[in-house]
Nucleic acid binder design. Structure first.
Lengths: 261, 261
DNA sequence: GGCGTCTACTCGTCTAGAGGAGTTTGCCCT
DNA sequence: AGGGCAAACTCCTCTAGACGAGTAGACGCC
């Protein structure tokens, strides 16, 4: 039986045994003695090596999993989590010069990076505006809004969900209510309707995902999500859209350029 | 003995018992039958209510904790996690008009919001630039940089750690090397040195914290961190500073305004 | 060769218990 | 009234074992 590359437990330490074991494995990952995708020793091997009960080992593995360092696969083993390639969202991705090429931002970017974009689960409804949305849109609470929800995928992998809210008096009866909102996306439609877009405000939060988000985005355990809420303002400073997106923090880096003026 | 406000287990469901229990409690929190700061029923009470072993209850509680919904306090109980007031970082917070008032951004903002700002653990060293930093600064790998690290607190609570890197040929021998970099902070010093700041680029990531970050920021379990890396460019497009900050996602909302042009 | 089956190995779930350590409460003694 | 102490209650750590279910490789049969 091969020796495992982990030190012995420190019996004098007041650090709990399962934490010490987690520390050993974490160290091995951080100094790259274990690489992305490598299989960890099995629970049985770790039990033997450390001479502890199975629950103690499972506790240690649980710590690593909730830190997002490992993933367990039933029947196969526990593996060092590998990170998918990162998508960078630049702050100018909604600039008009891009939109005028006739493609929505997501499609254009993904194709440019050599991926196959697709959009999924498109639903359009009319609802009363939720309070936060009403506030951002400058509407009375409960005012009618058109709600477009959809899911974005790259090469078949879900990467982002998005829900857009538009005041019904702007969007009702327009192509924005169609599942396929046409070339250039809803921002192009808004400009055709005479709402010349002036600026966006993006608010970024991050948190652990809800259960449905884990499912919809196929998230690994221990991976938080970004929640980005973008409000689009027309030239008269009227808010014309609020877009609420959720994306895996694993797959995204957000990038903004700011003037120092 | 009071009835607990949770339904019975569904014996036919193939969802694991501990997950069903976690679902019940999560539901109660989400529909606000349990409010922020409320104490959950004790492990013993839950065991009795559901008629299961203690480890099953603990498993359920573990799920909620790693979702960031609850915190356990040794000897006291398990509580619905309460969120601290949120600090909003606006994208214009480093605008020159603010800086010229002679206060660093953090100090000014915090006082404005009625908090008592402080800065902590200030360390200044000269080191070889780490690879990512060298790349952002446009320096050769290993070029000498001045490294300023510090921790920011509001009312004594740590909220953010920051490490700034400046090319040694710019900062060496200047007040930037002093622990107290003077009124207006290092951006003010850079402008005095003739590096008129032109723009910033901020890159935002989010992930679960490392162990040291949990300690330094006193993070609750299940709370991810923002990692914001800001590069400051002078008018000649030379990168003059890289600032690597880590903050609790609990305490911050990041906000950016973008032109639609 | 191809296809099933069997088996060993993996992690997932759950039980039943023990001792420990931090917190709160109330009671007793002064 | 006040201080000190013990009990009761909380969560924390760990043990030992059982059964289940998914995976993968070996093996034998066709």
């Amino acid at each position: 039986m091969a020796e495992l590359p982990f030190p012995e437990l420190d019996a004098h330490s007041d650090r709990a045994v399962f934490r010490q074991i987690a520390d050993h494995i974490r160290d091995a990952i951080e100094r790259e003695a274990l690489h992305e995708g490598d299989k960890l020793p099995s629970e049985a091997q770790l039990m033997q090596h450390y001479g502890v009960a199975r629950m103690t080992i499972r506790n240690a593995l649980q710590v690593l999993q909730s830190e997002g360092l490992t993933v367990a696969e039933h029947g196969r083993g526990v593996f060092v989590r590998s990170r998918p390639p990162v998508r960078r969202l630049a702050s100018d991705r909604f600039a008009r010069r891009h939109r005028e090429r006739g493609k929505a931002a997501f499609i254009a970017e993904t194709e440019e990076a050599g991926g196959k974009p697709s959009v999924d689960s498109i639903k359009v409804t009319e609802q009363a505006a939720p309070p936060e949305v009403a506030q951002l849109l400058g509407l009375a609470a409960g005012a009618p809004v058109i709600v477009r929800s959809r899911r974005y995928l790259i090469n078949g992998q879900p990467v982002e969900t998005a829900v857009s809210y538009l005041p019904a008096d702007i969007a009702k009866g327009t192509r924005i209510e169609q599942p396929d909102s046409g070339p250039g996306g809803i921002y192009a439609r808004l400009e055709e309707l005479g709402y010349r877009l002036d600026r966006f405000v993006e608010e970024i939060r991050s948190r652990m995902p809800f259960r449905e988000e884990v499912r919809a985005l196929k998230l690994a355990p221990g991976v938080p999500v970004f929640n980005l809420v973008r409000t689009a303002y027309a030239a008269d400073s009227r808010a014309v859209e609020v877009c609420d997106t959720v994306m895996s923090t694993d797959a995204y880096v957000l990038s903004y350029e700011l003037p120092a003026r």
